[in-house]
Design a protein around this nucleic acid. Structure first.
Lengths: 150, 150
DNA sequence: GATGGCACTAACTTTTAGAAAGTGCAATCT
DNA sequence: AGATTGCACTTTCTAAAAGTTAGTGCCATC
């Protein structure tokens, strides 16, 4: 019942585009992000989306309150931060703790799952930042070639 | 000149929101995705965005032509696939090879950089798919709590 | 007493994504 | 022989998402 592809049970109405070779590859993951209607898709978008990934790595170092988080993540709007935090809380990556003082004080932190995920994102981002000079050179040569043939 | 934060040279007009503690943390990365106008931001979006990450992991196993890729990545439109492939090619993650036959045959594959990146994304996605049952339970209890207090 | 911070929500506007159709050529059905 | 399908996209149009602005109530600080 919890499946998107591979050789597990197929969740009804879930389009999967696996090749036959994948069906007996020995993996027993019940979910597949490449399948159009797999429930893992929206979750992937929450953690890798424009703001989701940045929120997770901003919380990686230490918990933070709403406006402090907003300062850490350069350029995020209040709306998108609130929306993103809600989604990540619902998915179980972020914990929201309300201290019932006056005025109320709300603290956001990573759950164990969120912490693991943030660690992997951090590695990806370090890899990217390290590769950036190479990426910039690639963009320049691409743009040069594109304007040359125009 | 190639910098976004930390203790490197600051690229002009680049808002960085680093805490003073980060300035002498011993890291010498010149780019910082948390900084609003760092050139690494759009690149991060290309590789982690809705379709970028799926295209990279779809190309991880083997190179593919446009329409085959479209079949692998469930639900992607032609426009978004073309757009995403262009961005990934420009950034140096994907190589586009045109065989000048009639009709022309176009093959997309991962560059070494794209391959490394796809590996990290693959690990993240495996981690996610493995955690999905937990995520689903979290969503359910969140929704139950939300409807209870309404 | 005015300003600013906190933690948001709601309304409105702009940008982006997705859907649909068009292009031109060649190989494959009928 | 004519029709359909596939390839590799681009262009146009509309629906959805993101971003901007303003507003809420309360409190501490200038």
């Amino acid at each position: 019942m919890l499946s998107c592809g591979g050789h597990g049970v197929i969740l009804e109405g879930m389009d999967t585009q696996q090749t036959p070779a994948d069906a007996d590859a020995g993996e027993d993951f019940a979910f597949d992000v490449l399948a159009q209607r797999c429930p893992s898709r929206p979750v992937l978008e929450h953690i890798t989306g424009r703001w989701g990934s940045l929120v997770l790595i901003a919380l990686r170092e230490k918990p933070a309150r709403f406006n402090e988080l907003r300062r850490r993540v350069g350029g995020v709007s209040e709306k998108m931060l609130a929306q993103g935090l809600h989604a990540l809380e619902r998915d179980g990556f972020v914990a929201r703790e309300v201290h019932s003082t006056i005025p109320p004080r709300v603290e956001y932190s990573l759950t164990p799952l969120g912490s693991q995920t943030a660690e992997m994102l951090w590695e990806l981002i370090m890899h990217l930042e390290y590769a950036m000079p190479h990426v910039l050179r690639s963009q320049q040569s691409y743009d040069a070639a594109a304007s040359a043939e125009a």
